[in-house]
């Protein structure tokens, strides 16, 4: 298996894990928080909310502008 194939496989597994967590957040809300709860937790923390907003801005700028 080449390096790039291995890398893409791991990226795919990470995406699959995220999707599974999303599904479990509906089926087992006591063990897995819903994504909006995670965002809510971060957005209401005095320090994390600043990091969250700056991270959001950087993500958009880096992905679509530069």
């Amino acid at each position: 298996m080449s390096s790039s194939t291995l890398s893409y496989v791991v990226w795919t597994l990470i995406l699959a894990y995220a999707l599974v967590l999303w599904g479990l957040s509906y089926l087992r809300p006591r063990t897995v928080a819903h994504p909006s709860q995670v965002v809510g937790k971060l957005a209401t923390h005095p320090v994390a909310r600043v990091v969250l907003v700056l991270g959001f801005m950087w993500l958009g700028w880096h992905t679509f502008a530069r």
Partner: peptide, 25 residues
């Protein structure tokens, strides 16, 4: 100013940490 958000986990299930799987991700 912000207020700490409490999870939906019931007080009885103290061992549960619904954010842990996302931290791992």
């Amino acid at each position: 100013r912000t207020r700490t958000v409490r999870s939906r986990t019931s007080p009885g299930a103290r061992g549960a940490h619904p954010y842990r799987p996302w931290i791992v991700l």
